[in-house]
């Protein structure tokens, strides 16, 4: 083996070992790296009430109820499980039914999530309004919710 080949093998080995090590670390830290839990994760992971977490999913169609002032109730769903949420405050512009959302707050004892902040999650679809409207009319595509579910 020439010196160049030896150096190449050494570099490849180091990168492979480092890659595996980083991969294992990231895999072990998965719970802290995720930005939010889905409603299914909440049911699975047995999250205690009062623990500060973020939940994310789609705002369920027909679930948004406005109360007094800026009080609002809605349900976050990942199509398998659904979690009711209450929030007092100003919602982001992109907040709407069928749209992705991330809420930070605490799970109440009654199973209702009390949000302290709500962020809108944008999906990866970009199109002009006319195209969105046409697609909706054709029934091919039911709005942001449909596209996000496909992921």
């Amino acid at each position: 083996m020439t010196r160049k080949q030896r150096r190449s093998v050494l570099i490849a080995t180091c990168v492979a070992v480092l890659g595996v090590a980083v991969g294992l670390v990231l895999f072990a830290l998965e719970d802290s790296i995720v930005f939010f839990y889905s409603p299914s994760d909440i049911a699975e992971k047995n999250i205690k009430p009062g623990q500060r977490i973020r939940i994310g999913g789609l705002v369920e169609e027909g679930s948004v109820k406005r109360g007094d002032g800026t009080q609002v109730q809605f349900a976050v769903t990942d199509t398998a499980k659904t979690l009711p949420v209450t929030y007092i405050g100003v919602l982001p512009d992109l907040f709407r039914e069928g749209q992705g959302v991330v809420a930070e707050g605490k799970l109440g004892g009654d199973g209702i999530f009390v949000a302290e902040s709500v962020l809108a999650k944008h999906d990866e679809n970009y199109m002009p309004p006319e195209v969105a409207e046409a697609l909706r009319k054709q029934g091919v595509w039911q709005g942001a919710g449909q596209a996000a579910k496909a992921n």
Binding site: F36, G56, K121, E124, N125, Y126, A147
Partner: peptide, 17 residues
């Protein structure tokens, strides 16, 4: 991971979104 950032629009196996 679940991120707030949206997934890739261009480099997908199907057509760009």
């Amino acid at each position: 991971w679940h991120t707030l950032h949206q997934p890739a629009s261009l480099t997908r196996l199907d057509a760009p979104a």
